[in-house]
């Protein structure tokens, strides 16, 4: 049930917090997504979208940390 996909926030519309929406790009696919659960999110950030709603903003530094950890794993190999 938890199919959620990362996409980049292109623009934001709507004043009422319940109806605040954003255009989110998943590669070349653009969808209008509710931002009601992410009041602080800024244009340009990546958000995780589930059932038409952004539920989390992606932390680029944390993503990088995992990738760095993987590189160190690869170096450990003979």
């Amino acid at each position: 049930m938890c199919l959620a996909v990362p996409g980049q926030l292109l623009s934001v519309t709507g004043e009422d917090p319940l109806f605040r929406r954003g255009r989110v790009a998943f590669g070349p696919l653009v969808k209008e997504i509710s931002l009601a659960c992410l009041p602080e999110v800024k244009v340009g950030q990546y958000v995780l979208v589930h059932a038409g709603i952004a539920i989390s903003a992606i932390d680029a530094e944390e993503a990088q940390r995992v990738l760095a950890l993987l590189e160190s794993l690869e170096e450990d190999e003979p």
Binding site: L3, G27, P28
Partner: peptide, 12 residues
Amino acid sequence: SEAVASACEVLG
């Protein structure tokens, strides 16, 4: 194509 791949991710 990237468009098809992206749509498939979003739609499962």
